[in-house]
Computed example of a mutant assay.
Amino acid sequence: MSLNTVSSNKTAKSHNGSERNYDLNQFLLKHRGKLDPTDYGFSTYHRRVKGLRREEVAQLAAVSVSWYTWLEQGRDISISIEAIKRIGKVLKLSSDEQEYFEATVFGTSYSAHNDIQLQDELKQMIKALDPYPAFVRSENMDILYWNKASEQKIFNWSSVDDLDRNSLKLMFLNPEYKERIPGWSAAAQSTIASFRSYYALSSNKPRFETVINDLLLRSEEFKRMWQEYDVKKTRKGKKSIIDYSGNLRHYSYTALKPESMSDAFLIFYVERE
Score class of each variant (00 low, 15 high):
residue 174 N to E: 11
residue 152 Q to Y: 07
residue 195 F to H: 06
residue 203 S to H: 09
residue 180 R to V: 04
residue 177 Y to N: 04
residue 195 F to N: 05
residue 149 A to Q: 11
residue 151 E to N: 11
residue 181 I to M: 03
residue 170 L to W: 05
residue 162 D to H: 12
residue 207 R to V: 09
residue 191 T to A: 10
residue 175 P to L: 01
residue 150 S to G: 10
residue 177 Y to E: 05
residue 164 D to R: 15
residue 177 Y to L: 00
residue 151 E to D: 12
residue 150 S to H: 11
residue 200 A to K: 08
residue 196 R to T: 08
residue 186 A to V: 00
residue 183 G to H: 06
residue 200 A to L: 12
residue 175 P to T: 02
residue 158 S to I: 06
residue 180 R to E: 06
residue 207 R to C: 09
residue 181 I to L: 06
residue 200 A to H: 09
residue 193 A to P: 04
residue 167 S to P: 06
residue 168 L to H: 09
residue 181 I to E: 01
residue 176 E to K: 02
residue 185 S to M: 02
residue 199 Y to N: 02
residue 165 R to W: 10
residue 181 I to C: 02
residue 191 T to G: 04
residue 207 R to S: 12
residue 154 I to D: 12
residue 200 A to S: 09
residue 178 K to Y: 00
residue 148 K to N: 13
residue 185 S to Y: 04
residue 164 D to S: 15
residue 167 S to D: 11
residue 188 A to Y: 00
residue 166 N to F: 07
residue 183 G to D: 03
residue 175 P to G: 03
residue 174 N to H: 08
residue 193 A to Q: 05
residue 151 E to H: 12
residue 149 A to G: 09
residue 163 L to P: 13
residue 196 R to A: 07
residue 154 I to M: 13
residue 198 Y to S: 06
residue 171 M to K: 04
residue 185 S to W: 00
residue 194 S to E: 08
residue 182 P to A: 00
residue 170 L to Q: 10
residue 189 Q to M: 04
residue 156 N to A: 14
residue 178 K to L: 03
residue 156 N to M: 09
residue 154 I to G: 11
residue 170 L to P: 11
residue 164 D to F: 14
residue 186 A to T: 01
residue 169 K to E: 02
residue 182 P to V: 00
residue 204 N to D: 14
residue 170 L to G: 07
residue 185 S to A: 06
residue 181 I to W: 00
residue 163 L to S: 14
residue 159 S to H: 13
residue 158 S to K: 11
residue 179 E to H: 01
residue 170 L to A: 08
residue 201 L to S: 12
residue 174 N to G: 07
residue 201 L to N: 07
residue 203 S to Q: 13
residue 190 S to N: 08
residue 177 Y to T: 02
residue 180 R to D: 07
residue 167 S to K: 06
residue 162 D to Q: 13
residue 155 F to I: 15
residue 148 K to L: 12
residue 174 N to I: 04
residue 181 I to H: 01
residue 185 S to L: 06
residue 164 D to L: 14
residue 190 S to H: 03
residue 187 A to N: 05
